[in-house]
């Protein structure tokens, strides 16, 4: 039985309200970042007693001062560059290791594949606050203290297990018959993987890339431990070091830094993942 008019309307309204609530929850941090990053200091730092002041809006004209400060008075561009270059290398290393590992765990080792997969995933769960002590010893033996190479070496220890596990699940969801068909059609196993499996895995690969990048962007403990010179830091450590001086917070510039780092990631997440995930394997097998 179909529900009658007023009930349906009420249902739709509740639905909208819930969606709006979650949307607001997700958007609010970004909104707060934007407002804070472009507010003038006199608009930003107002006594708590001043109840007439509405902190959620621009009470004075927006300004680019904080952004300018960030880019000219701090080594923020250098940190961005460090973060990006570490990120890209880590992504490359991660894909180079996790794709073959995930594929073999998914296809070649039967029941053991699953157990090994879980084992690999467990290593990801060991917290970095525990691992940085042995790692710092390793890093110093290798003579990599205070270089970004230390991070390039250490970050894959958590990106590789996670991405291997993620890609394993992804490869498993692709029917083996597709690549077998390619092998009958004239490919070697490697050829079938490259020509058929990888193109179908783009959503999985993108997820792995974005995941690795995000981890590199937000990682704090290792970066703080292994890097001491300001000009070699990554964003996640450099920004708080430079913009929090004692108990003075440069909120405007802090928020500008967060904005510049997080908005591209958010855009990539929404643009690519939605478009790729699902749908792409449709039609491979039966009807």
């Amino acid at each position: 039985m179909r529900r009658s008019g007023p009930f349906r309307l009420a249902g739709a309204a509740v639905h909208r309200a819930v969606v709006l609530l979650f949307a607001a929850f997700a958007v609010f941090p970004f909104y707060w970042m934007v407002v804070t990053a472009f507010k003038q200091n006199s608009d930003l730092y107002v006594g708590a007693m001043n109840t007439a002041h509405n902190p959620f809006i621009f009470n004075q004209a927006p300004t680019l001062d904080h952004v300018k400060y960030l880019f000219t008075e701090t080594p923020y561009p250098t940190w961005l560059f460090n973060t990006l270059s570490v990120g890209l290398i880590v992504v490359a290393v991660t894909l180079a290791l996790a794709v073959p590992a995930g594929y073999s765990l998914a296809r070649l080792s039967g029941r053991w594949g699953e157990r090994l997969g879980i084992g690999v995933f467990l290593t990801y769960l060991v917290p970095s606050t525990l691992l940085f002590i042995p790692f710092s010893r390793l890093i110093s033996i290798l003579g990599l203290q205070n270089t970004t190479w230390a991070l390039v070496l250490v970050y894959p220890t958590f990106t590789v297990p996670f991405c291997t596990w993620l890609l394993m699940g992804f490869f498993k969801s692709l029917p083996a018959e597709i690549e077998e068909s390619a092998m009958v059609d004239g490919c070697s196993r490697l050829g079938a993987t490259v020509r058929v499996i990888l193109p179908l895995s783009v959503p999985g690969l993108l997820t792995a890339v974005i995941f690795s990048l995000t981890l590199v962007f937000q990682e704090f403990v290792y970066s703080l431990t292994f890097i001491s010179s300001v000009e070699k830091m990554t964003v996640s450590v450099g920004v708080p070091v430079a913009l929090i001086r004692g108990d003075v917070y440069y909120w405007g510039s802090l928020m500008a830094a967060c904005l510049v780092t997080s908005v591209p990631l958010a855009v990539v997440y929404n643009l690519f993942l939605d478009r790729f995930i699902g749908g792409i394997t449709g039609g491979a097998v039966k009807g």
Binding site: P175, E177, I178, E180, A182, I280, G283, A284
Partner: peptide, 9 residues
Amino acid sequence: FQSYALYPH
């Protein structure tokens, strides 16, 4: 193949 296994892309 039983599932046809066409290349979806």
